[in-house]
Simulated scan of single mutants.
Amino acid sequence: MTQITPIPTPASDDGYHFQVMRRAIDLIDASEDMMPLEQLAQKMGMSPAHFQRIFSRWVGVSPKRYQQYLMLGQAKEMLRGNATTLQAAHEVGLSGTGRLHDLFLRWESMSPGEFARKGDGLTIYWGWFDSPFGLALVMGTEKGICGLALASEMGEDAAMQDLMSRWPNATFVEDPMMLRPWVLTAFGAKDGGLDKAPLFLIGAPFQIKVWEALLSIPSGEVTTYSDIAETIGNPRAVRAVGTAVGRNPVSWLIPCHRALRKSGALGGYHWGLPVKRAMLAFEAARAEA
C-alpha cells in the first residue's frame, strides 16, 4: 500500500482540488463550447457555489476564465505575446544559482563520468507526496531532489518504474521524511524551513544544458523547442532538444510544461498531456490573479 506524506495546507488541499480540476478538464474537453458554471457543478455533483469556491481558491479566477486558459488558442496567444526570450533571461541571471522561475531553487549537476555509471554508488531516497497536481513520487540524493514524477495519468507503478529505470545501478531507500523539507519548500509550503529547495540534476551534458534553459522560463510564460535550441547554441538540434525536454526527470520544478511547439500546439508531455494543460492554466491564471 502506498504511504503518502501530506503537505500542509494549502498544498494538500490543492492536491485534492487538482483531482476536482482534472474531472472538470475531462468534461470541458468533451464539450465543444464553454460550459456554464451550473452545468459543470451539476456534472461533478456539487452546488454551483461550492464548485465556484473550490475553483477560485485553487487558481484565483472563475471557472469561465479558467476554461479560457485551457483552450489551445490561449497557448498560441501566450506564445505570440508572452513567450519569454531565454537569452534575456540568462543575461539578467535567471539561471544557475539565481532565483529560478517562481520558486526558490538551487541546483548542481552530476559529472559526465558519474552519469555514465548509471547511478552506481548513489543512494536515492524516495517517497510519495500530495502535490497541487495530484500524487507525486519524489526522489533525491543527499545533494537534492533528482526526480519528481506525477502519477495521476500514468499510475503509481509506472511512475516508480520510470524513475528507477533512469538510474538502474543506484540503491533506492524509502525515506519520505528525509525529502519532506525539500518538497515542502519546492511546493511553496510556509513551514518548509528552508530558503531554497536543492535540485541535483542527473543527466547527460546536453540534457542538463536543456534543463538549465527550462529553469530560466518565468512562471506564466512559455517558449518553443526551437528557442531553447537557439539558447543553448545549437539551433539545428530542435529534435534533440525535444527529446531532452521529454526526458526531464523533475516535473514542475524544471518546467518542461512551458515548452511548446512553434505552432503554439502543446505537443506531448511525459507525465500526461492533461497535467501539462492544467499546469499552464494554473500558472497563467495565477499570474493574472
Rank of each mutant, 00 (worst) to 15 (best):
M178Q: 15
L280T: 13
S56G: 03
F187P: 00
P168V: 03
A83E: 13
A11D: 06
Q207M: 11
G267Y: 06
G272L: 09
M164F: 15
Y16N: 14
Y225L: 10
Q207N: 12
D102A: 12
W128S: 06
P181D: 07
F200A: 07
L137V: 10
L100W: 04
A285F: 01
P249Q: 12
L179G: 00
S95D: 10
R261K: 14
M154S: 14
I124V: 15
A24G: 11
H101D: 10
K118E: 15
L105R: 04
T224L: 02
P198Y: 06
S263F: 09
P36Y: 03
F115P: 02
F55A: 12
A240N: 11
Q87N: 12
M279Y: 05
M154W: 01
G15R: 01
S131W: 03
S216F: 05
R236I: 03
G246W: 05
R99K: 14
L135K: 08
G134F: 05
G192H: 07
A75K: 01
Q161R: 14
D191V: 02
D14N: 15
Q87R: 12
D33I: 02
P168A: 08
Q207Y: 10
P48L: 03
A278S: 15
F129R: 09
Q19Y: 11
L103W: 07
F133M: 13
H101P: 02
H90D: 07
G268Y: 04
T97H: 13
Q67V: 10
E32S: 07
H257N: 04
G264W: 07
D13A: 15
M154E: 04
A229G: 03
A186I: 05
R106C: 12
P205E: 00
G193N: 02
L199A: 05
